[in-house]
Write a protein that binds this DNA or RNA. Structure first.
Lengths: 132, 132
DNA sequence: CTGAGTGCAAACGTTTTGCACTTGC
DNA sequence: GCAAGTGCAAAACGTTTGCACTCAG
């Protein structure tokens, strides 16, 4: 994936720090601020937490990344992608995407509610295949 | 609703402050810490924010109340009840319950994922009937 | 070359803690 | 009566800001 172009599309400069953040976000799938800071320090010894926050905020505001708020847990961040839901294993902490027919769910809920819906936040929690 | 009994069932003492918190939570449906503090101060002039937090934590830990984490917003709290989803109006901020067939959604997602699921957090956002 | 981004230290708002006092049971 | 709860002030925590310096475009 070309993160440099991605940043430019979102009117942000492609700094080495940002490329590192996006790369870690991609390989981890979902990552918290703390985890990100621990990992990025290995590449950028002197990176500051302030820089990390500024970048997370800049990339969230331009919708390049998305914050995922999870019940009873710190937020995780992911590179923005098409609509999807999340699965959380309460035992081992595995957190991953799952694709559902969210459009259908939205249509159903619109019919029931009279709302015009455009977004969802869906998190399922339980036990993963290994832990159950 | 008998909040005194409800507290006792959760091994918590029924103090006037707690009864006030639960009453406000019930009449508001969903309420943030700030809103709660503003409102409860009217009844308990000298209540402290520390007491509010301690009680919110105690009641969350015993699952008497539930924290609802909402994208791009402060958390709201509600008295725990059967499974349901939430609707948020991005324009006027209306936030309310909606009952969907969540069991069905869970069964569907279990089939797809191999997870054994027991809980969900589902928030739909868009425009309410008046705002759309 | 210039505005955007970085890193540091200080500031800020939110939540938690310690402690003496009070109260529910 | 005693453990649990309250309220205060202080501390801890996560996040943001201001500023001088650096760098991407």
């Amino acid at each position: 994936m070309n993160y440099e172009a991605l940043l430019h599309e979102h009117t942000l400069k492609a700094t080495p720090q940002r490329l590192g953040i996006l790369s870690l976000m991609h390989t981890n799938g979902h990552i918290s601020i703390d985890e990100l800071f621990e990992q990025i320090k290995k590449q950028f010894h002197s990176i500051s937490l302030a820089t990390l926050y500024k970048n997370i905020n800049a990339m969230s505001e331009t919708a390049l990344i998305t914050e995922v708020k999870i019940p009873n847990m710190k937020s995780k961040y992911e590179i923005a992608k098409e609509r999807h839901a999340h699965l959380l294993c309460d035992k081992c902490g595995e957190f991953k995407d799952i694709s559902l027919d969210i459009d259908k769910l939205i249509r159903l809920t619109e019919a029931k509610s009279k709302y015009k819906l455009n977004d969802t936040s869906l998190i399922f929690s339980g036990l993963c295949e290994k832990c159950k």
